[in-house]
């Protein structure tokens, strides 16, 4: 490489997420699932040891996946491979970067390693995605160097209500900031706990500086299409595919519904062809407070 070549720049890291737009990123736990995901049209896979609904069931401390699984998945597909590190666990993140993972999710699905600080993501060459419930949280993550955002939703529940809440909240806060007068922005930055410069940028452009996907509760093609209508740039599906009765068909149907989210005839067709039930859903109000993954992260 010549002197002229720069790696790990914001443009290169954010650009990678731009290329995923309109696509579906699927959780997989082995090479076989990764191949099914790729064959179904996933734009990337998230390599994990367990999908979120199984993490819920297993309890205990959820850590970065066994790196042999990550390696196996990387060898199995040509699409990008993402993997999760614990919030604040920059050594897990460095290990994933050293392996050549394409994107790291600093994720609330795993048990946080730091109860105060997130990873200083701007220091890394590999890009990061982070979850957020509102604009303040989203911009704190971007300020730390996240190159992609996603709603937190409530992972592993198959219940879309929290992802909808988070996406609507962010969109409404963006509209509010856009409509404010410039002299109101500093106080708004203080109230949201968001970096002023990023808020100013949103005021001027009316949009987030990075791609924002839906995540946490997507279980059906209609769920994916709903999130696209609400302004998501794409969709993460965690437990929704491999915990459904027919993973291959669910994967394909969710990909199609994400591309053609406003074609209702197509959504009818793919929904009729699912060949089984979606994953079993959980009522959010029945979760114990300590089981709510979305509260993790600060």
């Amino acid at each position: 490489m010549s002197q002229n070549h720069q790696v790990g720049t914001d443009l290169v890291k954010r650009g990678m997420a731009e290329m995923q737009k309109g696509g579906v990123i699927m959780d997989v736990v082995n090479a076989e699932q990764a191949k099914i995901a790729e064959a179904s049209g996933a734009v990337a896979v998230m390599a994990l040891e367990r999908v979120p609904s199984d993490i819920r069931k297993a309890g205990g401390v959820a850590r970065m996946a066994d790196l042999r699984i990550v390696e196996e998945v990387m060898a199995a597909v040509s699409i990008p491979v993402m993997a999760k590190a614990r919030i604040g666990h920059f050594v897990e993140a460095r290990a994933l970067e050293a392996m050549g993972v394409d994107y790291i999710d600093e994720s609330e699905v795993l048990t946080p390693a730091d109860e105060v600080y997130h990873i200083d993501k701007g220091l890394f060459t590999v890009p990061f995605v982070c979850g957020a419930r509102n604009l303040g949280e989203a911009l704190r993550r971007v300020g730390e160097g996240a190159s992609m955002l996603r709603t937190k939703g409530e992972p592993g529940t198959g219940n879309i209500v929290e992802a909808v809440r988070h996406m609507r909240m962010m969109q409404s806060q963006i509209r509010k900031v856009q409509g404010m007068s410039r002299d109101e922005l500093m106080t708004e930055a203080k109230d949201l706990g968001a970096p002023y410069e990023l808020l100013l940028q949103i005021h001027e452009t009316g949009k987030l500086p990075v791609v924002n996907f839906a995540a946490g509760g997507v279980a059906t093609p209609a769920d994916a299409a709903l999130m696209m209508h609400l302004g998501s740039d794409g969709v993460f599906v965690g437990s929704g595919i491999f915990k459904s009765e027919n993973p291959e068909k669910f994967a394909r149907a969710i990909v199609e519904a994400t591309t053609h989210y406003n074609d209702y005839d197509l959504i009818v067709r793919v929904s009729k062809e699912l060949g089984g039930s979606p994953m079993t859903g959980l009522e959010i109000s029945k979760l114990r407070p300590e089981d709510r993954m979305q509260e993790r992260g600060w």
Binding site: M1, N4, H5, T9, V12, G15, S78, P80, T125, P127
Partner: peptide, 30 residues
């Protein structure tokens, strides 16, 4: 495909492009 490597090898550079520009800002991602 992915001829330069994985995402960590993605880069940006200035390039001459025949008939287009002498100094085009080119972003290479996977």
């Amino acid at each position: 495909r992915n001829a330069f490597g994985r995402q960590v090898d993605s880069f940006e550079a200035k390039l001459p492009i025949k008939g287009v520009a002498e100094d085009f800002h080119a972003v290479f991602i996977r």
